[in-house]
Every structure is written in C-alpha cells, then in structure tokens.
Design a protein around this nucleic acid. Structure first.
Length: 308
DNA sequence: AATGAAGCCAACCGCTCGATG
DNA sequence: GCATCGAGCGGTTGGCTTCAT
C-alpha cells in the first residue's frame, strides 16, 4: 500500500506488488513449482528478494487462500485458540483453512484485541459448547489456558466503546425464565443483569442470580458451583453495601475486582461461561462470571453516563 | 467541504530454527 | 562443534481509506 520505493543498495523492489509482478510469480510457480525462493525470484525475472516473493505467495497469491471477511465461526475459533495458544498465529491459522497467519494476526489486532476478554469469551461461548463434538482443541489444551491475572491490562481497562455496546446483545444470558429452563441440565438459575432492565427499573439487585421459577435469589454455590468457596450473592451480602442494602454496579464491580479469586481458574475447564451456569454435568469456570458481571457493570455505568 | 484521527492491512524487519557442509 | 543458508514466525511499520468533527 503505497510502499513503492526501490531499494538503493540491492536494486530490489520493495513495497506493494504490481499486477505484473504477481503474474510473473504465479506463472513461474505454476510451471516450475517452489524450490528456492531466492533463485526462483531471479529465474522468474522479479526484482524482489526471495523473502518478499515467499511472503507474497503465502499470504496472497496461493490459490487456496480465502479472501474476504471472517465468518462468525472463524472468529470464535480464533478467540478460543488464542486463549489456548496465545500469539502463535501460524498455529491458529493452521486451524482455519484458507487463512494465513498474517491475516489472523491482523484480524486479531484490528477486531478482537480491543474487546475485553470476558466479552470475547461470552460471545464465543455458545459455539464452543454446541459444537464441542467438532472442537479443534482438546480439553487438556483448554485446561492449560489460564484466565488472565489481575494485572491484565485488558481486564483493567473499562473500555466499553460503541462496538461493545453493539456486541452486548450477543451475550447469551437468557431474557426469559422459559428460555433458561429449556436448557438441558438446567438448574433454573437465571442471571438477570441485563442493562436494559437495570436502566429502566434501577433495581440494582438484578445483578444477583435468581431462581427463574420462584423468583428467589439463589446461592449459586449450593446449587451449581460445588467447588467454589463463595458465590456472587455471598460476596454481595457479606460486603458493606450502600443504597439500602442493594448492590450498585460500582459496589459489585469493586467487590469482584478485589475478590481474591477474581480471575482465577477454579476447577476444570469449561467450554463456556454463561451456559455452564445452567449445567450441573459440565465442569465450570465459576469466576468467569466475574468477568461478565464486571463488563455488565461497566456497560451499565456507561449507560448512566450517557443519561446524565 | 475540509481536515485530522482512527482503522485497516500489505509488507517489511529481525529473530529463531533446522538442514547442510 | 561451527558457519552458512533458507524457511518460517511474530512484531512492527506506514500508506491508504474511512470516519468524525
């Protein structure tokens, strides 16, 4: 893109490839195949370094390269694999037919890096669970993927921008009790931290998990999180709370961040966060919910900022 | 309409690794 | 064991495009 200068010392072209250069390289490889990039470059009549030729071929000219936008499935795969593999772009790209490491890397930096981790996970959770049978990573790999620690800058940053406000609709909290009860293995525990409800009712207690059948606030620890030492409700109730005993988003957020188990992996890995709430069979990441609640608190605060 | 900021992405750079002599 | 070379990988750059003011 505009880098069309010519290397003074080596007399090799650098920068954007012209259509003629592309044509030469493709024609040469079609006829002779790939054998030595430096020699190939000369033989093809290209004033390019072998390295540049290889990059051009691998990232753009290869016939099996898939161009265009990433699908939802590809996005979710990237998110899941990045949690497991980190910045090993080539390894991630290997799981995405037709995608290059460069493309995956660029996509990550431009579309996913700025999205808080808890939201990325929330967005990808549904597919991780429902398509567990064709998952490309093992339970062992997932288990090795630790959640971020407390100095993770992505977590520390309440970066709720417009993109996130749009994305929040993808969070998979059921809106109606009937929806959650449809879930297999449902324990009827229902999180209702939906910002719309919070804004309309200003009922901060909506941040607490409730039983969708009885309407009673639930102790998550007793019903589902058998391995967890404390529940959200425990934390909320044992902390000093203002506003007549109701937990404000600020209170909840502060508690979650200060909680010693915040961001810690407790118990075996789960393929999902929200949906694990409803499953008594699946292993869980209990404190993943702190991420979600932190996000929801931030989003709620953002809403209030826009109102006042 | 003009302009500056932010986003996007192709390409480069430097490093590591494995093969070979 | 050492040097050299090619290939591959991840981080970074910077020009073009789009968006916001």
């Amino acid at each position: 893109m505009g880098k069309t200068w010519r290397c003074q010392k080596t007399h090799l072209n650098k920068g954007v490839w012209s259509p003629e250069e592309d044509q030469k390289l493709v024609a040469y490889i079609k006829r002779y195949g790939i054998w030595n990039w430096s020699e190939m470059s000369k033989a093809a009549g290209l004033a390019r370094s072998g390295k540049s030729c290889r990059l051009r071929w691998m990232n753009y000219l290869r016939p099996d390269i898939k161009h265009g936008n990433f699908s939802k499935e590809e996005r979710e795969t990237i998110i899941a694999l990045h949690e497991t593999l980190g910045n090993r772009w080539s390894a991630i790209a290997a799981k995405l037919p037709g995608r290059t490491d460069n493309e995956v890397k660029n996509y990550w930096h431009t579309n996913l890096k700025k999205v808080p981790k808890q939201l990325r996970r929330a967005n990808s959770s549904a597919t991780c669970t429902t398509s567990a049978s064709n998952s490309t990573f093992s339970a062992t790999e997932l288990e090795a993927a630790k959640p971020p620690n407390s100095n993770d800058d992505e977590l520390a940053s309440p970066d709720i921008d417009n993109n996130l406000s749009e994305s929040i609709t993808e969070i998979s909290f059921p809106h109606e009790p009937s929806e959650s009860s449809k879930l297999e293995g449902s324990s009827n525990i229902h999180l209702v931290p939906l910002h719309d409800e919070l804004v309309s009712t200003q009922d901060f207690s909506l941040l607490a998990p409730v039983n969708c059948e009885t309407g009673e606030t639930q102790n998550v620890n007793q019903t589902i999180l058998n391995n967890a030492s404390e529940t959200f409700e425990d934390i909320i109730q044992t902390q000093p709370v203002e506003n007549g005993g109701l937990c404000t988003p600020e209170d909840a957020q502060a508690m979650f961040i200060d909680h010693p188990n915040y961001g810690q992996l407790i118990g075996p890995s789960s393929s999902t966060t929200s949906e694990a709430m409803y499953s008594q069979q699946e292993p869980i990441w209990p404190y993943d919910h702190f991420y979600e609640l932190e996000y929801l608190c931030n989003d709620w605060l953002n809403h209030m900022d826009t109102i006042f």
